[in-house]
Design a protein around this nucleic acid. Sequence first.
DNA 1: GCCATTATGTGACTTATGACACACTTCCGC
DNA 2: GCGGAAGTGTGTCATAAGTCACATAATGGC
Lengths: 224, 224
Amino acid sequence: MSKQAEFAVILKMNPMFADLGADELQRISSLCHTQHLSSGEVLFQKGDPGNALFGVRRGQIRIETGATDGSRLTLNFMGPGDLFGEVAVLDGQERTADATAGEASELFVLRREDFLSFLEREPKVAIRIIQLLCQRIRWQSERMEESVLQPLPVRLARRLCALAEDFGSEVHISQEQLGVFVGAARESVNRQLQAWRKDKILDLQRGRILLHDLTKLNTIARNE
Amino acid sequence: MSKQAEFAVILKMNPMFADLGADELQRISSLCHTQHLSSGEVLFQKGDPGNALFGVRRGQIRIETGATDGSRLTLNFMGPGDLFGEVAVLDGQERTADATAGEASELFVLRREDFLSFLEREPKVAIRIIQLLCQRIRWQSERMEESVLQPLPVRLARRLCALAEDFGSEVHISQEQLGVFVGAARESVNRQLQAWRKDKILDLQRGRILLHDLTKLNTIARNE
DNA sequence: GCCATTATGTGACTTATGACACACTTCCGC
DNA sequence: GCGGAAGTGTGTCATAAGTCACATAATGGC
């Protein structure tokens, strides 16, 4: 499979591009480049202009942010097949976090200027993108309003299910970071996780959570 | 002032269109129509296709949703100069609430089909719109994450300040509805409002809140 | 291995807010 | 004006979750 075709597949897997036709995807993919990073190399930093979208071909990219006290907080890991910077490539705003290679990595790069001039030549795709962004706005506001007022167990279950989509049943995250994600104190997170451990829904290890019963977790997340 | 110019001013006041140039605004405005509604007339209902954007020229439109128990809940009042349906005009999704005229009204109407074909002819404006949508996505996610985990007084103060922008210092809303807005129990809303009344920040009447000290309310809203 | 560091587990206490109950007031239709 | 409905004010209680304090356990550098 050619690089372009590989990139098209990655785009297709992202909700933002999922509804585009094969033809449109192919033309977008033809704009892409690749970039190699060695382990520890910085891809971009907070405040840099958002001048590209990236897809991970191999390796791992850590998305992290410097806390005020100097410690670093990992927000996300991007592995092969993951896409990030979809919004930045469109609006060119500053990056809101840092990205560094956790290991030697190869990335697909879609540059903002290339993508925008493509959209200018293809207004129908631009309108498609507009509709996708609108969906996202609607989806976001629904989710937020609905999700935020939920009790902690629900928020926690939702976050774990989301993480499971990226990592499978072994989620690699500290309870502290999980707390930041769901907007709760570490201790509260711990207590809830303990309760679930007693129910055999999951197991806990230092820096790791093993999800045994995603079905049950999903039920809690739905809060029916 | 011509109708078109009037509509351009309304668009300009909306963050979604605020950054567009006078030239672009004028061309968009030339697509608009007007529509008259008598008091109580229905503009659209939940589930209708979102086929237009509306600007209020005169009168009042009530945005409301039917609760499960049959009672109606007013989500918002749109007065002269207000714009609604900005997202619907772009993505055409179903309306998520009902809109009825609270009094005899005249509206500016920008039809979806007209706007889309305009964007197709003017890809630069389409890209502009894409960027504005991206801003909105960023803004939304920042706001939400940040706002929702705030304590009730902060959420309440924020909502009151926002309402003050629409209504001035006399906000016409029941404490029950205010509770729905900020995701809190009516009683909790009442107790907080009582406290502020004692501090002379506001005064309470049946179905009405008189804001005396917006400065103080803003300080609370900022939660510094 | 040893120590410093970081992550986790848990108890005790406090606080914000929701839930329920009920009194009182204002409004509106007849 | 009467009566019911809707809105408001307040007390009491239960509970979820934050904070503080400290113990314990794993990890990594030397």
